[in-house]
């Protein structure tokens, strides 16, 4: 075994261990700030795996998009909405956790079994290395042209939706009749799903 392949093996093991442990931490830690930072670590180690596979463009995109944008955005959101709030205890939380743990373990066992029983076509095709960017560009303007263009519609719509949900200068009247409106469902007099049944639901009438 040459030095190069040993190094590669060690890098792979370290990166995989970071990914697995980090993602377990993301899911299991109670503090959301730790989870967010660990998520950044997971994204970085996945980028490292891409580098090992000679896919440098994908690795760079992973760092730029996931670590640079998505993860930072998550951290911003956490810092902006860092409100201390004691949530009511969920009944039977332990049973629920055990159940979901069992389901996840079952799925993991299934995936492992399939991964070990399948005969993989190894080694895969040789990586194109630096040419990858050219290949991706060719794909985007030939056979993946339609999804590429459709993605712009997706982004446009996501942007509009984010603005609609976030904006504050809401008009609180019906444009046609001028009656007051509350941006809620028209169907009013039902039991709210989230709010406790004992607590009176906040209504327009209850205000003095």
């Amino acid at each position: 075994m040459s030095i190069a392949s040993t190094t590669q093996q060690i890098c792979f093991l370290v990166l995989s261990a970071t990914t697995v442990v980090g993602s377990l931490g993301v899911v299991l830690l109670p503090n959301i700030v730790y989870s967010a930072f660990l998520l950044g670590g997971v994204f970085l180690s996945v980028a490292g795996l891409y580098l090992l596979l000679n896919a440098s463009f994908v690795a760079a995109a992973q760092i730029l998009v996931y670590v640079g944008a998505v993860n930072v955005l998550i951290l911003f959101a956490i810092m902006l909405v860092n409100k201390q709030e004691t949530l009511a205890a969920i009944p039977g939380l332990l049973v629920r956790r055990l159940l979901s743990g069992a389901v996840c373990a079952g799925l993991f066992a299934l995936l492992l079994r399939v991964a070990f029983t399948t005969t993989w076509a190894l080694p895969g095709p040789t990586p194109v290395g630096e040419e990858a960017t050219i290949r991706i560009g060719e794909h985007l303007f030939t056979d993946y042209l339609l999804p590429f263009e459709l993605a712009s519609v997706l982004l446009l719509m996501a942007m509009i939706g984010a603005i609609v949900l976030a904006r504050r200068d809401v008009f609180s009247t019906d444009v046609i009749t001028g009656e007051p409106a509350d941006q809620g469902l028209i169907e009013k007099d039902r039991t709210p799903l989230l709010i406790e049944k004992s607590a009176p639901a906040p209504t327009l009438l209850s205000k003095p």
């Binding site: 895969g124 095709p125 990586p127 040419e131």
Partner: peptide
């Protein structure tokens, strides 16, 4: 995963 990334080529 490695093989599927590289098969893009």
């Amino acid at each position: 995963a490695a093989s599927s990334v590289t098969t893009a080529a």
